[in-house]
Design a protein around this nucleic acid. Structure first.
Lengths: 346, 346
DNA sequence: TTGAAAGCGCTACCAT
DNA sequence: ATGGTAGCGCTTTCAA
């Protein structure tokens, strides 16, 4: 007994368990995989010895045979953005009970780096991938490559409409519309938009902003739409410019919460009141939005749900023999009203 | 040629490359691992065919032989806290060039869940682990287990002094001292402390707070130290209590930035001015600290550096034959002065 | 410089 | 219900 514990201290193998019990390796293997045709007596003996020896199955060896790694790859533009961190967390939670682990890759919002990360995951033979892509709208080559490898994958957050693949996210157009609609209801007349440079999501929100205005027959000149970029600080600088536009905007729809936070700072510094002079709304409902001096109204993108649903979709793709058709899940945005937009209507 | 591309579309193997070229599998293998004794001619032919067939080595098979997975496990209490997200990012960046991928596990600040995650990584035979532990101070069993498995690992952020293991982080005592010292310099007399419940880091910062006061012969009664907990909102409630203490504190050292953000909110709501009535300082220098209405002074813990250094340490442990002795790296905290503490001294 | 053989630890398949 | 055999795709060793 207690063999292999000497020189080298290598981990216990099935063979060791089997030998101790005078059964075959196959029997042990079957017990581990809960195979039905094993007598209760043998099963018990095996289980007992396994515990005694602290045996742990070798995933690598198993993977080699089954061609399954039980690893899921997640590619995000920026783990530091709490939106993606939350998605990552939700995914990990969802797949863990099924035995999968999650490898997170950062693309840093760079298309090329994203492609490299995906190649790496491909080479590692993960069982499936979830990608919030930083590719520009037309660039779908990498996704075709993934599909060519017959690797299950799900896109999240950033939609590529021309592509027939599974997707989970919130309609950006709906986000833009909902935010704008809200400010209109609150009596804003001159609603500006700080748009994101991130083409795929930025365009959608801009479109939503425009269609909401249109529906309410509000004419707002183009100079009310300004580029805000993506970073934390850009909202600040952009808002400063916006304050010089005449007539001064009385409402601002921001691409996302970080941008909105910057905008708020600029408005307050200019000595104006939020929301009575200018109402502000963001998108994403990131964690700290409530902690800003003026708590920020926002459109929630239910990041947790995105994570859960995409994980579920992916597991289906992985575990079903016949590949189900790609499915696009559009989640509804939710309006969160805080102080930054709490002004009376007319 | 182009064999194995038919039924099933299984990935190309070394064998396929070899057969096409009339060389042995071993030769191909050697080329891939840059083994010296291969003629330049053969090498070139092999490389060419590999590219043509888009061959990718099977990591699983390789792992089975070499007993190396090239996977590193990272266990953090909360990926949503940008402090840990940044560490994760830095680690991934550091180890990637060497071919490692990183699996991130969340413990949700729960000791038991952390132990389970660690067990999982152990079972997966990762090459090494980096953990920011949520274990209470005395509980070192799980670390001994990791060591028993001869698994290289590095502790970060949370130090366990009784344990002789590698560690990278900032001295919590130094953080507490630096923050307190700063408020003293700015002329605060009645400095309160909102402490964290997180025993291992909370205790250290509290200690630093106390010793700074002592050095300056400032007597501050115990009622100036209150429990703030760990979440985002607790700083708010705690600060409210603190405002009723007489004489009213004119400075608050907060356990971390999220707590400080809540405290700021409470102070402003009470109609008091920051920093002239009360100066506030946090710790962690999280991303949004600059975006709060009153930009928050803080003690930076250089999360990026923690990631880099711990990764470096771990790689050393993994890649050196003879295990180097455990090394404890204490990084220096850095003071970041923003508006929340910018008041004149006396 | 090249390659045949053995084996990493497991599972699949088919006898018994 | 149990087990022998044959791999999975690679690296290692050693002989040629």
């Amino acid at each position: 007994m207690a063999r292999r514990r000497g020189g080298g201290n290598r981990p216990v193998r099935m063979k060791d368990v089997a030998k101790d019990l005078n059964v075959s390796v196959v029997t042990v293997s079957k017990v581990l995989r809960k195979h039905p045709d094993i007598s209760p007596a043998t099963r018990k003996r095996v289980l007992k010895r396994i515990k005694e020896l602290d045996y742990q199955p070798n995933w690598i060896a198993r993977s080699l045979v089954t061609r399954r790694t039980y690893i899921i790859g997640l590619v995000v533009p920026d783990l530091m953005h709490s939106f993606f961190a939350e998605i990552a967390k939700a995914i990990a939670q969802k797949v863990r009970p099924k035995g999968y682990i999650v490898v997170i890759a950062n693309s840093d919002e760079d298309p090329k780096s994203e492609r490299q990360e995906i190649e790496l995951l491909l080479a590692r033979r993960v069982d499936g991938m979830i990608v919030a892509s930083a590719q520009p709208p037309g660039q779908t080559g990498i996704f075709k490559r993934i599909r060519g490898r017959e690797m299950p994958f799900v896109l999240i957050d950033r939609l590529f409409p021309t592509l027939d693949v599974s997707y989970v996210g919130v309609s950006d157009e709906a986000i833009g519309e909902m935010a704008t609609e809200h400010l209109i209801e609150r009596g804003c007349q001159w609603i500006a938009h700080i748009r994101g440079h991130q083409i795929t999501t930025g365009i959608g929100r801009l479109k939503g902003y425009r269609s909401a205005l249109e529906r309410h027959a509000l004419k707002v000149p183009d100079r009310y739409v300004v580029k805000g970029g993506y970073g934390d600080t850009t909202g600040y600088d952009t808002m400063k410019k916006l304050l010089r536009v005449k007539p001064r905007p009385d409402g601002v729809v921001c691409y996302n919460d970080p941008v909105a936070a910057g905008a708020i700072k600029a408005i307050v510094e200019a000595g104006l009141d939020i929301p009575s002079d200018i109402a502000v709304i963001g998108a994403g409902n990131v964690r700290y939005s409530d902690l800003l001096r003026i708590p920020l109204s926002t459109v929630d993108q239910s990041s947790g749900l995105i994570g859960e649903q995409s994980a579920e979709l992916l597991l289906e793709l992985i575990e079903s023999k016949r590949r189900p058709c790609p499915q696009k899940i559009l989640l509804s945005p939710k309006l969160i009203v805080r102080d930054s937009s709490k002004r009376d209507g007319f």
